[in-house]
Simulated assay, not measured.
Amino acid sequence: MITGIVITLNESKNIVECIQSLQQVCSEIIIVDSNSTDNTIALAEKLGAKTITQSYLGDGFQKNVGLDYASNDWVLSLDADERLTDEVVNTIKTLDLTKTEHDAFAFRRRNYIGSRWIKQCGWYPDYCIRLFNRKKTKFSEVKQHASVQAKNPERLNADLIHYSFENLGQLFSKPGRDFSGRAAKIMYQKGKKANAFSPFAHGLNAFIRKYIFQRGFLGGTDGMTVALSSAINSYLKYAKLLEYQRDPKVLENENFNKVW
């Protein structure tokens, strides 16, 4: 028996398909919602999901909230824009979770822009642990880019689908995707420093890594755009950190108690 857990904020476009996807292998679904103002909760409850309201704590903290409410030891955690493929469903159904020596299982993830599967820039195979025993492991308690801290995971030969962005423009403008601002605040709070060369150096390094070493050049316009997005995000992260260090007015007006 498996419990499906999804964290949400205004996911009315995604939540129905996400829950229906999970229901193929899960006996219960838990939605941890951070104060949605659309009908996400109503849609989830109509499909039989249990809903919990929790103001957003940051990625890892939020994803761990639902663990205490789960009836089953095994948890399948998805983001609202992720889906199980038939391949994943069939693979999970073959697992004997009562006898396995593993504390978690990872799946490959296909990341999409629109209907286009992006295979370069490190976007595939992008292994992610999504199925795990909550009595043995959980997500790292970090506010950004959390992962399950399993000691003995196994990689499975099956793909999840991740509808990352509706179009190329969302790479730069997707609502709530201020990764650079959040990261800059976190780095500043940890006492990290930047100099005048940091934004350019980190931005250039991010572009070279994505476009050259992770073969973004094979992805045409999409590969170039993903590499540029990564470079801009990295540049801005260090530019914002540098701004906090050198501009007292900006620092004074920033609310570091509200990273999210």
Rank of each mutant, 00 (worst) to 15 (best):
N10A: 02
I161Q: 11
D59F: 06
Y112A: 03
K93L: 06
E154N: 10
N257A: 13
S229R: 11
V148P: 01
N253W: 07
F217P: 00
L76K: 06
N90I: 06
G48E: 04
F256Y: 11
T221L: 14
K249R: 11
T53G: 07
N167D: 12
Y163E: 09
G216C: 01
A201P: 04
D59N: 14
F256D: 08
K237Q: 11
G66P: 02
D33G: 01
G169S: 13
G58H: 01
G169W: 09
T8L: 03
T85S: 15
E141T: 13
K63L: 04
D96A: 05
T37L: 10
V250T: 15
G4D: 01
G66H: 06
W123Y: 12
N157R: 11
K174M: 12
T221D: 12
S55Y: 11
S164W: 08
V250M: 15
I30Q: 05
F105V: 06
V6D: 01
L78G: 02
I41F: 05
V226S: 02
A239E: 10
G122D: 03
F200S: 07
Q62R: 00
P153D: 02
E11P: 07
F217A: 08
S12P: 05
K190Q: 14
D96L: 03
H145G: 05
Y244N: 13
L131F: 00
Y127N: 09
S140E: 14
D73S: 15
A183T: 15
M1F: 10
V259T: 08
G181F: 06
A184H: 01
L156G: 04
S229Q: 13
E28D: 11
I30A: 02
K93Y: 01
N152P: 05
L43N: 13
I2Q: 04
W117R: 15
L9P: 06
V75K: 08
L251G: 10
E82P: 08
W260E: 07
D73A: 15
Q20A: 07
K190F: 06
N14I: 01
R109T: 10
E166N: 14
L251V: 07
G176V: 03
S198G: 03
L236C: 14
R134Y: 10
K50M: 09
E243H: 15
R215K: 15
F165A: 08
N64D: 03
A150S: 15
S36T: 11
K151W: 10
R134W: 13
D178N: 14
K210N: 14
N72F: 06
F213L: 09
F172K: 08
G122I: 03
I208N: 07
W74H: 01
R108Y: 09
A206I: 04
R215G: 08
W74E: 00
S77M: 13
I52M: 00
A104C: 03
E243M: 10
R109W: 07
T91K: 15
R108W: 09
P175N: 02
K258V: 13
H145K: 14
